[in-house]
Amino acid sequence: MTRRFSKTPTVDRRRFLTRALQATGFLLLAGCDSLSRSDWFPQLLGKTENASEKVQRLLSPRQAMAKEFTPDDLSPVFPANGTSNPESEAYQALAKNGFADWKLEIGGLVHDPASFSLDELRAFPSRTQITRHDCVEGWSAIAKWKGARLSALLERVRPLPSARYVVFHCADPDEDGQPYYESIDFEDAHHPQTILAYEINDTALPIQHGAPIRLRVERQLGYKQAKYLMQIELVESVESIAGGRGGYWEDRGYEWYAGI
């Protein structure tokens, strides 16, 4: 029985194959990395973000609720990611007297711009939920959040018909002075689990978790859960804000639709 390739490869052939594989691998990787640094290729890759968003929103009922857990499921330690203590003088001054002078401004495309103190926010209809926080890095942590329903606040300030996005401006600038901000659409803004949280695990929100107020928008990744909220702005388009992609991390290549 003749068998053409049954001989064990000689050392030379093996060395040649290994080198050829290494060279091919190197060229492929270098090619992929230069594609990553081009303008057009990441944009092409980003197109599927729209596909993922559309398909997920098609499959998922508008008011589908994120799973809620029991007190037994709480993470022993809830990690503080990103900024854990904003350095700006204005924020430090607010923190010094327990945010008694802090006010959340809501403006932009609304009939009745307003600002609310922490006590006033606590008087709004609230919601308490034990939910899972999914970081884009891959880890998850479970905590109990209590906060004012964003839909109730929006009802109070009465959005104009042209308003399409709710933008959250935060108190934490990065090392280059770029402030953190985030934006969500009206569908998520009116979702019952979307709250401005002032409590985590039954205690006032500590500074590392975004005191005095942090956004919770439970069907999206962790970077959407903006901390240190200072101002809420209703806009028709996010293009004129900072990098124009609707959020701090979005301006750095992450997806605005942070559902996956």
Partner: peptide
């Protein structure tokens, strides 16, 4: 898909 918070809310 299980790692997607939006997909998890639906399923």
């Amino acid at each position: 898909l299980s790692m997607s918070p939006a997909f998890d809310a639906a399923f």
